[in-house]
Write a protein that binds this DNA or RNA. Structure first.
Length: 518
RNA sequence: GUCCCCAUCGUCCAGAGGCCCAGGACGUGGCCCUUUCAAGGCCAAAACACGGGUUCGAAUCCCGUUGGGGACGCCA
């Protein structure tokens, strides 16, 4: 039930669709983009993974069809909106690589892109509806309404605005105005039914009976969400509204507004929500939900994008790992599933490992640099003379990484001059008194600098083991502790090779001192 | 309470009436590789919520039940 038979039907009978109305003629260089979508966050919080996925779906859809992706800031709630939040959201989107064609900073022909800068426009549109008789002034005090609502809730009844101001006489109105009573504007909901064909849920229908005469313009002259979203989507020529499931029940109200303004309606695609492990709407108590937090923890934007794209969407094939471009090529709104999705951090880890695995070493090394600097392990020569060496190290470590900072710990033995022996490791692998002689022999067997490669080193170790009549494992384990100070590391022959002959010799000397003194 | 959405392995998805005693991925268990830890390879356990229809045939269509989610603001 999520295919497009509805398109043809609607095109015949229903209001015009943007998707048809805005298609340019072939050869018309100035044709409007066929597709215009937007992400419209409210800066009352950080960019959370749910919002990020909504943004991603919009972005993928726009890029897939060569359309426009617009960023609009819904900051009409001045109380709760803040600049920091705007900056954070913008930052998060940039990090994910979701660039916009029109928005607060980039500008564009349909600006401004802050709702707080479009207040006059909303007011004018609301007044227009009053003039047309489609909306009316409401002088009810919020306190009175709240009391009524609470009362109804107590009684277990549904509350709907009682239309006290719907048909006021001119006298009453004059009285209110004379008393300078604050007034809001409410939409006059006509009787009937409203339906639409959602791109992910199919046909959805509402009886107006369940709608109340909702407020368009608050008494402080600020618009409500219902008004501003519709006015902006009209002004910005939005063709497809891709947003969270939680907006389904707002859609009939908005549809009524499009009709009242006599404007073509966009198509809607309501994407399911992201839930926490307890199947509740994802929130702070589920741990990290902010995109920034995942960045801070060392996840790659590629992994985040990959993971998020597959939460509630499927390319229709048994394929999981995608680059951003591959996602763009594969994305369709029809692939969005209808049910909510549970956020699974373990799978995110896997995607992160996969993306690190597939990235060129040079690229990964670049991502690691800030982390190395931060932890004091960085040397400038890693950017110049030892760049190739660093990339070799990256190749050695990366199969063992889940997140970026994993590198710091695992690569440490390669980045410091002297390693501390882990007591337990020393106890276990350096307690054999014959080890000193074995290792002395090994030191002589090790290949010269120009042939200091894993296979040559391995041959030397095995040869030594045979000669000394000990198991290769004995030497190997001892070597691991000597080289890294630990009992776990990458393959030891690779470790020696990457360490290089000089440092290997240093560390062998050091282990001899250690063995002699214990 | 009312309205709306949803319902396949623990989790994310595939599945458009016969291709399905249901496929892939994460996670889990085992084996292989192996000097450790990973990575990788192979194998395994693991699901169509329930009840009615429709049909020669239903995971797929319809109805109901149950369960989950969302919305019912002068928040967005």
């Amino acid at each position: 039930m999520r295919r497009f038979p509805a398109v043809a039907r609607r095109a015949k009978a229903g209001p015009r669709c943007w998707s048809r109305a805005s298609v340019g003629k072939p050869g018309d260089a100035r044709a409007l983009p066929v597709i215009r979508v937007r992400f419209a966050p409210s800066p009352t919080g950080y960019l959370h993974v749910g919002g990020a996925r909504t943004a991603l779906f919009n972005w993928l859809f726009a890029r897939r069809h060569g359309g426009a992706f617009i960023l609009r800031i819904e900051d009409t709630d001045a109380e709760r909106s803040s600049w920091d939040m705007v900056a954070g959201i913008v930052d998060g989107l940039r990090w994910l690589g979701l660039d916009w064609d029109e928005g607060p900073d980039t500008g564009g022909p349909h600006g401004p892109y802050f709702q707080s800068q479009r207040l006059d426009r909303y007011r004018a549109m609301a007044e227009r509806l009053v003039v047309d008789g489609l909306a009316y002034y409401c002088y009810c005090s919020p306190d009175r309404l709240k009391a009524k609502r609470d009362e109804a809730e107590q009684a277990g009844r549904a509350w709907k605005y009682d239309r006290a101001c719907c048909e006021l006489t001119p006298d009453r109105i004059a009285a209110f105005e004379a008393g300078a009573a604050p007034r809001a504007i409410r939409f006059r909901v006509p009787p009937g039914r409203t339906s639409f064909d959602d791109l992910v849920h199919g046909h959805i229908e509402f009886d107006h009976e369940h709608l109340e005469d909702f407020v368009l313009l608050r008494s402080d002259q600020h618009p409500t969400y219902q008004l501003s979203v519709v006015v902006d989507d009209i002004d910005m020529e939005i063709t497809h509204v891709v947003r969270g499931d939680d907006h389904i029940s707002n859609t009939p109200k908005q549809l009524l507004l499009y009709a009242a303004f006599r404007q073509p309606i966009p198509r809607f695609a309501h994407v399911p929500l992201i839930l926490g492990p307890d199947k509740k709407r994802l929130s702070k108590r589920h741990g990290a939900t902010s995109v920034t937090e995942y960045r801070r923890r060392g996840y790659l934007p590629e992994a985040m994008v990959n993971f998020l794209s597959l939460l509630g969407w499927s390319p229709g094939a048994d394929r999981e790992v995608f680059t951003r471009d591959e996602l763009v090529a594969a994305f369709t709104l029809e692939g969005i599933s209808g049910g909510n999705a549970v956020f699974n951090p373990e799978k995110l880890d896997w995607f992160n490992a996969q993306q690190m695995q597939r990235m060129p070493a040079a690229e990964l090394a670049g991502r690691l640099e800030p982390w190395l600097r931060e932890s004091g392990l960085w040397e400038d020569r890693y950017a110049t003379a030892d760049r190739a060496w660093l990339e070799r190290l990256v190749d050695l470590i990366r199969p063992r990484m889940k997140r970026l900072p994993d590198f710091l710990d695992q690569a440490r033995p390669f980045l410091v001059d002297t390693v501390e022996y882990d007591p337990a490791a020393g106890e276990k692998y350096l307690s054999d008194p014959t080890l000193a002689d074995h290792l002395r022999v090994l030191a002589d067997e090790l290949p010269p600098a120009d042939r200091f490669q894993p296979d040559q080193i391995e041959a030397a170790v095995r040869r030594t083991a045979e000669r000394r009549r000990v198991k290769a494992a004995t030497l190997i384990h001892a070597l691991r502790v000597a080289m890294t100070g630990r009992s776990v590391s990458p393959g030891i022959f690779d470790v020696l090779a990457v360490l290089g002959p000089d440092r290997v010799r240093d560390r062998l000397d050091r282990v001899h001192h250690f063995l002699a003194s214990s």
